[in-house]
Simulated assay, not measured.
Amino acid sequence: MKKMILIMFLIFLCIPSIGYAHSYLSSSNPKERETVTTPLKTITLTFETKIEKLSTMHLLSSGNEIPFNNITVKDNQLIGTVSTPLENGSYTIVWKIVGEDGHPITGEIPFDVKVAQNKIKTPSQSTTSTTKQDGIEKNTKLEKSQKKEEDSQAKNTSSSTWIRILIVSLGIIVIVGLISILKKKG
C-alpha cells in the first residue's frame, strides 16, 4: 500500500501539467449566430477559468474593424464597449485570450444586429465619416497585428508541446526506475 501511495505521489509530482485545464468560452453576449434586436453597446465573453489581463478582442463588420472604447478583463470575463450602439448588419467578434494555464486560445463569434429603426440613434456625420485610405490603413495594421499574434501563438504552442513531452517522458522514466527499485527491495 505504501508503494502505491509513493508511486501516485511521484506521478503527480513529475507531471504537473495534468492538473491544468484550458479555459474555454462558456458563454457570450451576444451569442454565436444570434440576431440582436435591441441596441448593443457592450460585448461580454465569459470563460470557464480566470483569464490574463493581456487577453483582447476585435469587432469586425464587412472586413472593417469597429473600435472598442474600452476592453476590460475581470476574472473570467472579457468585456468590450463601443461608443454608440451597433448599426444593423453582420459582425464578428475575434477574440484571443491567455488562460490561467498560460495557453493562448482564439475564437470567433459571428452575430447580426437587426434593431427597429426608431430604436437606433444615428451618430453625427462628422464622427462616422472616414476616408477610404484610413480604412485601408486600419485593415492593414489589423492584418499585420493578427499575423504577429498567430506567429507568436504557433511558437508558444510548439515549444509548450515539446516541454510537455519532455516532462511526461522524464516522469515515466522516474516512475519506471522507482518501480524497479521498489521491486528489488520488496
Rank of each mutant, 00 (worst) to 15 (best):
T128H: 06
L6Q: 11
M4T: 15
S62P: 04
S152R: 13
L170D: 04
L45T: 06
K31R: 09
K50P: 00
M57L: 13
P123S: 00
L10P: 00
I93Q: 05
E150V: 15
G19I: 13
G135M: 06
L10F: 05
A154Q: 12
N64V: 05
K184Y: 07
V36D: 00
K132Y: 10
K147Y: 14
Q125T: 13
F111E: 03
S152Q: 15
S158C: 08
E48Y: 08
I167E: 11
S17A: 08
T44D: 05
G102N: 03
N64W: 04
E34M: 06
G80C: 05
M8Q: 12
E34V: 01
E52L: 11
L6R: 10
S158G: 05
E52T: 11
S169A: 14
N156A: 15
H103K: 13
T122F: 08
W162Q: 11
M57E: 02
S17Q: 15
R33C: 05
I165D: 09
I105N: 10
K121I: 14
T37L: 05
S124F: 08
V115F: 03
T49Q: 14
L25F: 02
K144S: 10
T49R: 14
P85F: 00
K183R: 14
Q133F: 13
I120K: 09
N69M: 11
E149W: 07
H103Q: 14
I163P: 01
E137V: 12
K184M: 04
T56D: 08
G177H: 07
I109T: 03
K144L: 13
I15F: 06
P85R: 06
L78H: 00
T81N: 09
L25N: 07
D134P: 05
V174N: 03
Y91M: 00
Y24F: 15
I167M: 12
F47I: 03
P123D: 01
G19M: 14
G102I: 07
K31N: 12
S126H: 09
I173Y: 09
K184H: 09
I165R: 08
I175Y: 00
M1S: 10
D75N: 10
P39H: 06
T81E: 10
P16K: 04
F111K: 04
D112K: 14
S126C: 09
V176I: 15
G171W: 00
M57Q: 02
N69W: 03
T56V: 06
I163K: 09
F68A: 01
E48I: 04
S55M: 04
I175N: 02
I93P: 00
E87R: 11
W95Y: 15
I43D: 00
K41P: 07
Q146P: 01
P123Y: 06
G107K: 00
I167C: 05
S129G: 08
K119F: 13
S55V: 07
N29D: 12
N69E: 13
I120P: 00
L182T: 03
S27P: 04
Q117W: 02
N139E: 15
E48A: 10
T38I: 14
K144R: 12
E150S: 14
G19R: 13
K96H: 12
V82I: 14
T140M: 11
K148L: 13
I109D: 01
P30W: 03
N139S: 15
V168C: 05
K185A: 08
